[in-house]
Amino acid sequence: MNTGDLSTLLVWGAMTALTIALVAYAVDLAAIAERAQRRVPAKASAGAGGGTTTAVATPPGGTSAVGDGRSLRAEGIARTTTYVGIVLLLGAVVTRGLAAGRWPTANMYEFTVVGVLVATTVLAIVQRRRVIAFVGVLVLGIAVLALALGLLVFFVQADAVQPALQSYWLVLHVGVAITATGVFTVAFAASVLQVLQDVREVGPRPADEAARRTDGLRRWVTGPRFGWLQQVPSARELEAQAFRLNAIGFVLWTFTLIGGAIWAEHAWGRYWGWDPKEVGTFVAWVVYAAYLHARTTRGWSGRKAAYFVFVGYAVVLANFSVVNLFVTGKHSYSGL
């Protein structure tokens, strides 16, 4: 077995570990949901009668509230296996770099593996004090799916790269782009949760035209099925959390754009040429810029701003997958 095969094996191992963590988070989430469901009937009637908010503030301090149904055992397993997965991925990235004799961010497979490493690391940092099972499920779900795609679809043998990629910008530009993608992934999970929590906190409203249209979603989210949201921080806290991550991601993304332009100037003789990848990166940048503006625009902050995050993350993912696989351009380095 050579170093390249060892790296692939480590990625399989990491995927297994992260799958276990995903299951553990799901068990935790299910336990919370079940517990909440049992308590809900009394509160649901109160909510329907008075129209008051049904959200229960979690006690501050991050200590586990007794009786909210969290499975500490499942959370422990989830956390430990996430750490194991991160260590295995780190080993996989290092051995991949050794096998190829270069920095391992040159094709879609390597991009996926390093991106998952960043996303799970950010997840581990965010969850270190207070576990939010939903964020774990969402991020690890995306991570396991990405690793499976990477191993089964994007995989290419570790090898040296063509002259156009032989530059230290491969480390800076691509490395930062991957890191930004990883950070955006966790931020996206936080924003999804923020929207759900916000819908739940607002609760049933007098039926006006706009409310009737989204009534299905509201009833669904405020119903017992989403009782686990009680364990989750308030929408405001989640918004702050998502903003911090998105701000970091946005700055990294800006660096990706500028670094990419400098590299393009060196390699292709122009800093900007509206190559499909450049367009995708630019569109994502503009959407996240719109998100930052929406946050500070009256009437657009909160839930509406979070929708920009959804669009922005979708563009980031499309820019990675669709543009690499189905559009020809100067960034066609997928190796497929």
């Binding site: 509206w274 367009v279 995708g280 719109a290 503006h293 625009t297 009437g299 543009v323």
Partner: peptide, 24 residues
């Protein structure tokens, strides 16, 4: 105004897309 700036930003993002759909 902020609202128009927001609108123009989104328009810019949308308007940049056709360049990858059709050959330039």
């Amino acid at each position: 105004s902020m609202r128009v700036a927001l609108l123009l930003l989104m328009l810019l993002a949308v308007a940049a897309v056709p360049g990858t759909v059709w050959p330039q």
